[in-house]
Design a protein around this nucleic acid. Structure first.
Lengths: 332, 332
DNA sequence: TTGTATGCGTTATCAC
DNA sequence: GTGATAACGCATACAA
């Protein structure tokens, strides 16, 4: 492995000069810089990152913590973030919390141990507050939150425009002539779901409808729960459902079909996330698309921006987009 | 940040003793070890990984390189690997090659720069040989390949049992009474696809059928290509298709439907990968399931095993599993 | 079983 | 604009 000392010797200068030249310091002659970078290339020099990190007190690595990597939303967000960070010379360490608070704490400790320059995270559903985040990271570690965020932690937050997304989805169902629209609302504690709920409610009241708590179902947005919620909703007179997730919306489709209802004629459904299967199933399902890759990109950009002292990013709201398909299209 | 020196001072011993105690060296008194670990916990000590890595010459990090993170197969594999590696005290750096040879080389350089202990990788489709892998990694870096592997590179290789998977899928179609079975075969250069092709051929010959190159289609296994291939196959008299991918199989479904064929009565289809949508579409699609999470786990275990000098892992073949659904089930 | 001494490769602070 | 020097925190070879 070739070191800066090797380059220095080959060039008859000192390691300090090489280090400065490689770092692009203005305090080094242009010709020297050129000579150094040429020689570095020729000798196949590559910086020893651990040494650099030790000396500088932080690494060129950004940690990303998500509940699970193998979920379309998160893997796309990571993909977007990784692409941007690489362009800026940063690598990415990935940690999964498995929706588990303790694992999340462990991940934070690991990242601090590695002296990461920043952390991009979407917290576990079992993390109720963000205290552990600040406690387990260094003071100068940049924290970027996305999707699931704690308002009380300062710094950039990249989120879906959940309110308007849900608003549009619900509004669309009303426009299509559905009379009584239930809501599969997701976990009560999670901000993203709360915003979707608010959008749903606002759409109802804006259109002169009543909000009825009996047809709002709080729970995990998995297929099975969606099925159960939809059955109850139908019992309670609903002719449509807005679901905060696509999988629960899929469950709702099955419930409606099981009860002999035709979709969209008798029962309308709009889901959220625009999962791939929504465009393939029969009938195809309307859904509110999120843009996870873009969210990941924005999160990484927020990190890069935050590197400059004094720069503030704040909250970035990424639009969602209603994709109308067969499951909610009653009018022609 | 508390260091081993701080602990040493607090305990009246030297840093070396603390270092040894923390590393679990046998050359330290039990009582001392206990005192050290208690004090470390009390003071909230966490190892400075960059310092440790610099000293040791390698880090507690494993690099994973995949074409794209946001593909179900790879994100699941990463998830499995990450889970196992974390249990053994390793972190994971993720790199994407974007199917691009140059990006893959860059990733290897980055990982070497970070002095990773090992690399787990599935190469880009544009990497024809594995030379760059050895060239850009340290001698003692453990290399584990999975899914797409270069035989010429020694070390553990974790692969699907592509041959038997494709064999079973094809065999099943024959058993169901389909007469002329085409093949959407994937890229010609990739070993995994080649093995599927061999399985397909072997099933045909075992059952006394001819292999006809006119109904084997080599190309990317995306929906569009599957559509085109299936149209040709049908023109050429096929009444069934085995596809090396689910998305291309989906294209085949559309082609058959478009030509007025009923599935499975007139046309049978078996895909590969068992993507989520296969169980939701109409008709549901038979597919040969892979087990990416398990493959990731095995890859990580192979790395851990390879840590012990002298231990050899070699090739691990993970079974695939035919999931029969409506698209190929003609007999009752 | 513990202590002493040294160096991993880089960068920052001085001095010139 | 460049050089000398020190220090980041840890792990090991050697000595005791």
């Amino acid at each position: 492995m070739v070191t800066i000392s090797d380059i220095a010797k080959a060039l008859g200068v000192t390691p300090s000069t090489v280090s400065r030249a490689l770092a692009g310091s203005p305090r080094v002659k242009d010709s020297t810089r050129k000579a150094v970078s040429d020689m570095a290339a020729e000798m196949g020099y590559e910086r020893n990152e651990p040494a650099s990190s030790l000396r500088k007190g932080h690494s060129n690595v950004v940690g990303i913590i998500v509940p699970r990597i193998n979920r379309a939303f998160f893997s796309s967000a990571i993909s977007g973030a990784e692409t941007v960070l690489n362009e800026h010379g940063y690598s990415v360490i990935i940690c999964q919390s498995h929706e588990n608070h303790e694992d999340e704490v462990k991940a934070l400790k690991t990242l601090r141990s590695n002296r990461v320059a920043g952390v991009i995270l979407s917290h576990a559903s079992s993390s109720i507050t963000g205290d552990h985040i600040l406690e387990n990271l260094g003071q100068d570690t940049i924290i970027v939150q996305f999707d699931r965020v704690f308002k009380e932690i300062s710094g950039p937050k990249i989120v879906n425009d959940n309110f308007h997304g849900a608003y549009e989805g619900t509004h669309h169902l009303i426009e299509q002539g559905y009379k009584r629209i239930g809501n599969i609302a997701g976990y009560k504690g999670t901000l993203a779901y709360l915003d979707r709920l608010k959008g749903y409610m606002r759409a109802l009241t804006d259109m002169g409808r009543e909000v009825d708590d009996d047809i709002i179902f709080y729970d995990s947005i998995v297929e099975k729960k969606g099925y159960e919620a939809a059955k109850l909703a139908i019992e309670r007179g609903c002719d449509a459902i807005y679901s905060a997730g696509d999988f629960s919306a899929l469950g709702a489709v099955e419930a409606a079909k099981g009860l002999g209802l035709r979709i969209p004629e008798d029962f309308g459904i709009v889901g959220t996330a625009n999962e791939y299967f929504t465009s393939i199933m029969t009938p195809t399902m309307s859904s509110i698309a999120q843009h996870p890759y873009e969210i990941g990109r924005r999160a990484a950009q927020a990190f890069i921006t935050s590197l400059k002292p004094g720069a503030e990013v704040g909250e970035v709201v990424v639009p969602m987009e209603l994709i109308v398909r067969e499951s909610s299209l009653r009018k022609k």
